[in-house]
């Protein structure tokens, strides 16, 4: 019974540990912005803690560089289950511009299993709050793959538009 109650209370109070694995600090400053009065994220019950042993969620920013790879894994293992990982910024989502350089592992999901990606360079604080609200189940997901197919020639659509114009001109003349 206590474990069911704990599971229900888990989304209402998430404690966050911030880990920077070789980022330029742009995304770190935006994470700090999210805790200021303007975009207050503490109204969802989220608190920033200093030790991974107290935390539930790890915020990872930065493309995981080679020296920080074992440290990120150790910090991930220090968090007690149940846990979530958020990858913030383009560097954590796929490695950014440096995804195949010599020093970079490229993206957070090559080091630890990631639950939510929040792209952006740097990520807008509203985008981080949107990602958090998505994880808590307060909003619906808006990103989806887009497929576009061009199946007619551009010259054909131009001529079709001209034909419609001429037709409307004739109707105008008939009405008058």
């Amino acid at each position: 019974m206590l474990s069911k109650l704990s599971k229900k209370c888990f989304p209402k109070s998430l404690w966050v540990y911030h880990c920077n694995s070789g980022a330029c600090n742009g995304c770190d400053i935006e994470i700090l912005n999210v805790l200021t009065p303007y975009y207050d994220v503490e109204r969802f019950g989220i608190k920033l803690v200093g030790s991974p042993r107290h935390a539930d969620v790890m915020l990872l920013s930065g493309a995981v560089t080679r020296p920080t790879l074992p440290l990120v894994k150790r910090a991930y293992e220090a968090i007690p289950a149940p846990k979530l990982v958020f990858g913030i910024g383009s560097c954590a989502t796929g490695g950014g511009c440096w995804f195949d350089t010599y020093n970079v592992t490229g993206g957070a999901d090559k080091a630890i299993p990631v639950d939510y990606f929040i792209p952006g360079c740097p990520t807008k604080p509203e985008a981080i709050i949107y990602g958090v609200a998505l994880a808590l189940g307060l909003v619906d997901k808006k990103a989806s793959p887009i497929e576009l197919k061009q199946m007619e020639f551009p010259i054909d659509s131009y001529e079709m538009n001209k034909a419609w114009e001429e037709r409307n001109v004739i109707y105008q003349l008939i009405k008058d």
Binding site: L2, C9, G45, A81
Partner: peptide, 10 residues
């Protein structure tokens, strides 16, 4: 909520 959540962790 904080205390109930902490009691449910491993």
């Amino acid at each position: 909520f904080d205390i109930l959540k902490l009691l449910g962790k491993t």
